[in-house]
């Protein structure tokens, strides 16, 4: 019992890490490689999650769609949907500099969240969507968990591989050039606005895929799941901690933050009962402390960007 239990727990954690890893990879394209401060991750995550749920769940008189299509279609739909939402947002907002872009994307994510929360006919409103199928969901508990874990990790690896290819190509170098010195890149004849839009849409599509992975794991989606704390800022912490600009850093950040987030509860349980309730807040504190320490002692993250040319976007590039 105990060892099977531990494996089940590790499987669950691995699946969540895989989902957050995909999210962090999506953010890495936008922030790490292109320098776009997207503070609206939850919005694209939500679009992906709801869309995939609507495409694959069975129909319900309370809301639209419910097409019962295969899960793979749902995933593709989630990516396409998030990209479609990102395109007009990018067209309008990418003209802003980083901090204004952050404000605009936060606003967009809140709009998406509130629409999903209130539009009963679209998303089930506050009650959300249930009955979303899970691949291998019919198997016995441990097996089903493990099969889905393997699937999520496979998706994570595919996304990682594709992004690595993309970043190693001239496109990746061009993005870094734009990030580090926009004027210079423009002077070299690069279409800065178009490239930034490409990165923004690509990142959003990856975030939408993460939303789809999540919704089929939980078999349901309610507005609580797209809270900015858990779907935006936690992802930022993962990327900054792991090392922005480095895809492996993004995944490492997801691993470390989720493990600390989840496992610290075992430690707080060892505290005396009188303060055990308050001690649950230690988890939140630990994440914050970790971020502070990293920013103080290793601002480039645990696995910094590899080219060696990278400096903080706020400093002039080194020669």
């Amino acid at each position: 019992m105990a060892s099977i239990g531990l494996i089940n727990y590790a499987t669950f954690m691995g699946t969540m890490i895989g989902i957050y890893g995909v999210l962090a990879l999506g953010l890495n394209i936008q922030w790490g490689v292109t320098g776009l401060f997207n503070a609206g991750i939850a919005g694209f995550f939500a679009v992906g999650a709801y869309l995939s749920a609507l495409i694959t769940a069975s129909p319900s008189p309370e809301r639209i769609m419910g097409w019962e299509l295969p899960v793979a279609v749902g995933w593709l739909g989630a990516m396409a949907g998030a990209a479609l939402i990102a395109w007009p947002i990018g067209r309008i907002c990418l003209r802003f500099r980083s901090d204004y872009l952050a404000i605009a994307t936060i606003g967009v994510a809140e709009v998406i969240r509130l629409v999903l929360r209130t539009e009963e006919g679209l998303s089930g409103g506050a009650r959300g969507i249930t009955g979303v199928p899970r691949p291998f969901g019919g198997l016995e508990y441990s097996l089903s968990q493990f099969a889905y874990f393997a699937l999520v990790i496979a998706v994570l690896l595919v996304v990682y591989w594709a992004l690595e290819r993309q970043l190693a190509a001239p496109w990746g170098r061009m993005m870094k050039a734009i990030r580090d010195n926009e004027q210079a890149a423009a002077a070299m004849g690069k279409n800065v606005e178009k490239r930034r839009l490409e990165a923004f849409v690509l990142g959003a599509a990856v975030m939408g895929l993460a939303g789809a992975l999540y919704v089929h794991f939980m078999r349901a989606i309610t507005p609580e799941a797209i809270d900015p704390m858990i779907a935006t800022f936690l992802v930022w912490i993962m990327l900054i901690l792991g090392g922005s600009g480095n895809n492996r850093g993004a995944i490492l950040g997801a691993i470390i933050v989720w493990i600390i987030w989840s496992m610290s509860e075992f430690i707080t349980d060892q505290l005396p009962a009188e303060i055990a309730t308050q001690a649950k807040y230690i988890r939140v504190f630990l994440i914050g402390l970790m971020l502070q320490l990293i920013l103080r002692f290793r601002p480039e993250g645990l696995l910094p960007e590899e080219s060696g040319q990278r400096t903080s976007p706020h400093l002039p590039p080194s020669r």
């Binding site: 099977i4 089940n8 669950f12 954690m13 987030w261």
Partner: peptide, 18 residues
């Protein structure tokens, strides 16, 4: 009050603490 945290907690409770 959040599904990510609640499923994580429930998984720990059921699988690790039995």
């Amino acid at each position: 009050c959040n599904p990510q945290l609640a499923t994580d907690a429930a998984t720990k409770a059921v699988n690790v603490n039995g």
